[in-house]
Design a protein around this nucleic acid. Structure first.
Lengths: 158, 158
DNA sequence: AATAGGATGAAAATGGATTTCATTTTCGTC
DNA sequence: GACGAAAATGAAATCCATTTTCATCCTATT
């Protein structure tokens, strides 16, 4: 494969630096995976990313996608979340403020939420127990507006 | 098997009622699983519960433990949590106030935490986005006091 | 005690994620 | 440019918690 490694976005530079800093090398596979990752918005699974990558380079293997996704997480570009649907979903974390998620239990629609006072309280809770807080996971589950309407309609029919 | 089904605790009654209310029957296996569950404190996996159950009745199968654990969750006696360690951990939920967890990332020590103002804010966040909040998961990760000391000692040595 | 449907255990299946391993690439060095 | 050690890759195998299958057994009601 004859590739020219030009990755211009800031995020891409971070990844390249991460590789260099850890004695890892850029490869055509990593390049296409990272580029595809950076172009993809929202929350997606490793399998979905693999499918997108294979649209460009069909011979990329799933193991490589899983491996590169791990590098993306370690380099700080990606974050992995378990929304309880059985697969890990990934999202961008570079250039995105920290946030938690509000998830519709019916259609899976996800809204990013932040609340400074919750974050402060979490810190206090940890300290009160002598823990040094390193990170947290908060997920709110409920019915989104659209699904509330659908549910109401269904109930009216029955 | 000749069993006399006497389960006297309130929790046990709830389970029996749940079975009756759903056309399910009490069986020796369910009885020993529920009794063992009720005697066990803290957080434990299905496999750990299976081992405890088999101390009393070795021929109980793991599928039955998984199935009964599901009934326990549905009946409101148990709660299942994913602490990110690869297995679901269960804990009692009857007679236990709602709480979230503060987990040591090193020794897995878990502390139950509650914060009314966080709960209120979660409700507000959901409402602000038009969602009807049904439940939430919050997990705080950090280093517990003991593990902080261990880490400091290790760092001093190196 | 007959019977229908539920419950059980052993074993197989599931499925996302990881590992293995033979092969291919990368990249610093000659 | 060519060399060679170390890293990276893809296909397939493996892992492992959980679920499902299925033949058999039990329960509750008649």
């Amino acid at each position: 494969m004859d590739f020219i490694f030009v990755m211009t976005s800031e995020a891409a530079k971070i990844f390249v630096d991460y590789l260099a800093g850890n004695g890892l090398s850029m490869t055509p596979q990593r390049k296409v995976i990272v580029e595809t990752f950076l172009e993809t918005k929202g929350h997606f699974s490793a399998e979905e990313l693999l499918a997108l990558v294979q649209k460009t380079v069909p011979e990329v293997g799933q193991a490589t996608v899983y491996r590169t996704l791990k590098l993306l997480v370690d380099s700080g570009l990606a974050e992995s979340h378990d929304f309880g649907c059985g697969v890990a979903l990934y999202e961008h974390s570079y250039g995105h403020e920290h946030h938690d998620h509000l998830v519709c239990t019916r259609c899976q629609k996800k809204v990013e939420v932040v609340d400074e006072s919750i974050e402060k309280r979490q810190e206090i809770l940890a300290r009160k127990n002598g823990y040094v807080l390193t990170n947290h996971r908060m997920m709110l589950f409920g019915l989104c507006p659209a699904c509330q309407k659908l549910r109401d309609k269904e109930e009216a029919e029955s």
